[in-house]
């Protein structure tokens, strides 16, 4: 009797493994099928507002001048997100931006744009000090601020998602991916995002610009 018992357990074990394997494979099959038949359904539903296209705006540059979508049209735009109180990661991203500025020094059709995620702090004088830290060229690298609402509207409508479940202890005010650098083509389409913390980002950005240029000249 005691010898029979383990054997019975083994039978149950094998049976269970077989049944479960079938169930698991069936599950995986269903999941894969679902993801193939609706490859982007969920992402579209998730981001109804993100058009990934530069939306109209009027904001204030650090010089005090008004800058609008029209005044930067027909240029490649290299865009990042800053706050002048930044000490670590946004500092890194700005160094990459400075590198991009150096690499595109002779390409008059490229502008750099930094949008503040802390507009109340980042008044034009605060932005002037910050821009100087990174050697920003007044004509090639613009720093935009304004009332919080229009600034945040531009960032949210054109570039970054805002997390609805925002934890207070996040400086970004809920924007996801503030360490990214976005590339906008001459038609105003947001073409690609780059990880602004990576040292290779400036080169990748310039490569992308050149690639888009060569495609559009065909």
């Amino acid at each position: 009797m005691s010898a029979e018992r383990p054997q019975k357990d083994v039978t149950i074990f094998i049976g269970a493994v077989t049944v479960l394997s079938v169930l698991i494979f069936a599950g995986i099959f269903l999941i894969l099928r679902h993801s193939h038949s609706h490859p982007h359904a969920s992402s579209l539903a998730d981001e109804p507002e993100i058009k990934r296209e530069l939306q109209p705006f009027v904001l204030t540059e650090r010089s005090g001048a008004e800058v609008s979508r029209e005044s930067v049209s027909n240029k490649f735009l290299v865009v990042n997100f800053i706050h002048t109180g930044c000490s670590i990661s946004c500092e890194q991203v700005n160094k990459r931006m400075a590198e991009v500025q150096r690499l595109v020094a002779n390409d008059q059709d490229v502008l750099l744009l930094s949008l503040t995620i802390d507009p109340r702090s980042d008044t034009p004088p605060a932005l002037v000090k910050f821009a100087d830290r990174f050697g920003a060229d007044a004509n090639r690298w613009l720093f935009l601020t304004g009332d919080k609402q229009p600034v945040f509207d531009l960032i949210e409508s054109s570039f970054l998602r805002r997390d609805t479940n925002v934890v207070y202890q996040q400086f970004s005010g809920g924007f996801v991916g503030v360490d990214k650098i976005a590339l906008v083509d001459k038609t105003g389409r947001v073409r690609r995002y780059f990880n602004g913390l990576q040292s290779g980002a400036p080169k990748s950005i310039v490569d992308s610009i050149n690639e888009i240029r060569s495609q559009s000249s065909l």
């Binding site: 000490s87 670590i88 109340r120 919080k148 202890q169 996040q170 400086f171």
Partner: peptide, 20 residues
């Protein structure tokens, strides 16, 4: 109270990044 004063901070590299 922080959000109502637009005071923001986040933990970063063992310290904080914050505005004034």
């Amino acid at each position: 109270i922080g959000p109502r004063l637009d005071f923001r901070f986040s933990r970063e590299a063992g310290g904080f990044s914050h505005n004034l």
